[in-house]
Design a protein around this nucleic acid. Sequence first.
DNA 1: CTGAAAGCGCTAACAT
DNA 2: ATGTTAGCGCTTTCAG
Lengths: 356, 356
Amino acid sequence: MTTSTRASGDRRRATIEDVATAAGVSVATVSRALRGLPNVAFSTRELVRTVADSLDYHADPAAARLATGRSRAIGIAVPLLNGWYFSQVVAGAEAVCTEAGYDLIVMGVTGDEARGNFLHGRSAVHRRVDALVMVDIPLTPEETEQLAGRGLPVVTVGGITDRFPSVGIDDVEVGRLATAHLIGLGHRRIALLGGQPEDPLGFDVPDLRRHGYERAHAEAGLPVDPRLLVGGNFSVTGGYEAMSALLGLGAPPTAVFAMSDEMAFGALWALRVLGLRAPEDLSVIGVDDHDVSAAVDLTTVRQRVADHGARAARLLIDGLTGATVTAMRHQNPVELVQRGTTGPPTQHDPETPRKP
Amino acid sequence: MTTSTRASGDRRRATIEDVATAAGVSVATVSRALRGLPNVAFSTRELVRTVADSLDYHADPAAARLATGRSRAIGIAVPLLNGWYFSQVVAGAEAVCTEAGYDLIVMGVTGDEARGNFLHGRSAVHRRVDALVMVDIPLTPEETEQLAGRGLPVVTVGGITDRFPSVGIDDVEVGRLATAHLIGLGHRRIALLGGQPEDPLGFDVPDLRRHGYERAHAEAGLPVDPRLLVGGNFSVTGGYEAMSALLGLGAPPTAVFAMSDEMAFGALWALRVLGLRAPEDLSVIGVDDHDVSAAVDLTTVRQRVADHGARAARLLIDGLTGATVTAMRHQNPVELVQRGTTGPPTQHDPETPRKP
DNA sequence: CTGAAAGCGCTAACAT
DNA sequence: ATGTTAGCGCTTTCAG
């Protein structure tokens, strides 16, 4: 075969000089004309455009970057690119960037080591991007400072720092809303599927949602049973395992609030395996309104995830183009979407429906 | 508030000159030392490294790109970044790129207009990336030529061209495998949930899988009922709608082969809404082995999606670093994962289980 | 083994 | 309105 590395039509790309020569003007004029700068005669501009087109000329971004200091690229750092939530955020950001003529550079930042590299130097952050969106990357105060010290505009999605604007939702409210829904239905033993118990640093979304869960209990004058708080790793299998464990408890819950729909899917899976059903045997509520949530009739707290990414990108691009960012926190609304996996608790003895 | 656009510690970044001066050597030596080039005294190299570190120096990628012509970035073009399949591919590519020290620039290319812009010029393809992976972007022969003419290494994922290496699966086999499974179970009226009937250009995965579906029928001596071939748009809701329509047919199918798990989820959804169940009332099989497929017990044809992206990136990076790409098509294996949504057809009158 | 210097392609003063 | 020119920060001959 032929290696695609050596393609055929490898004719040298046109440079600004080629255009200038062909159009009979100077390179400066070409630059001005093509970028829509003032002080170019209409006819000249037209001419230059035509010539440039015919030569399929486009300014080399690296050269432009070197000369201007701006790269027209924004970076987006996400832990684990797979996972519905993150891909939605990236999709939202991508749409805005593309439409604004910015490139989007995605960087997976998973684990402490990657975060170190990332924050340190070698990574793409360096001078490749004009701005950065950090999606739920936990940052220590020192790291925050360090990043801020880079002089790079940053917007976070999800987490909140005291240095950068952020976009996200009221996570406490999410937890409260979901839990109150369950309590309102009559549930008293409500399990919580959250992040890892040993979550290293302050990725605080799980904590906030748990606060909401606790608050709802407090508002209803209900106690929280700590044995009902388990980690589900925000994944389908994590939810499955956590739910399986919960169902093995002496006094299992009658409902579960999963902090993400993917964990809720895992919970439903665990129920099915044991021959149990939602909401008859146990109610399940998630968070996100994942694409397949409607398909499995999952009650959930919807958030407009793609919009988080879009707003973050918009904020950054607007800031880059001179606008002043006006608020620190950009809160998106959440909404309870009541579907079929939640209902009143059944009155049968909770001990009965163990593994058939 | 303070706009993050004007950050504080905006001290000028160290340049190679700064390092050279501080180390008392020339910039050329710094360049050589830092990039591990030969002909640098061990002690000099150590010195330069230390100084560079202490100055937090990192070569400006744009300047390096300008001088070398290489950007250490690869682009990945995907139609719609959301969607499980694409985000998996991107995740796979991202992992390889990060580990190889390449940036990954994602570009959403949806619709003809975007494809035009993309292939033409303005987009990031231009000189920003050293190589490009095109994920299921339909290309006319002319577009293929045009792209090849750019002299940019390209690898496609999914689709096959006669110009670029590609990675993917045997889509005909996927269709055959899924359909044969159903036929083996005793099904005779098997519906097909595929792409859009009016699919503009040759995004040919749906066609190939349909061929497999037809082949399985042929091998079993079974006829294909064209009324059972419907488009599901590769989305959950598309699958839902298509399945709903199928169930309204005078003689509904007893099984359905959905070309993606997401459509299969939609099909299951439609069944549930009508009070039907899989596999009792109708068997459902998908393709992908989506994260939630196990959770809903969906039988499917598994493909290692993230690996597609990883291999594509690997191929490109290896090619960039001098290796010769050895094959045109890199086929990943597929595998039937038998779960609970497929079973023998029920013998009751197919007319009976209409909407209760 | 190391240094000097010529670019890479573009932008941004500064002329004119 | 347009042209000249000095960089931007790095790599890479070519000398030594």
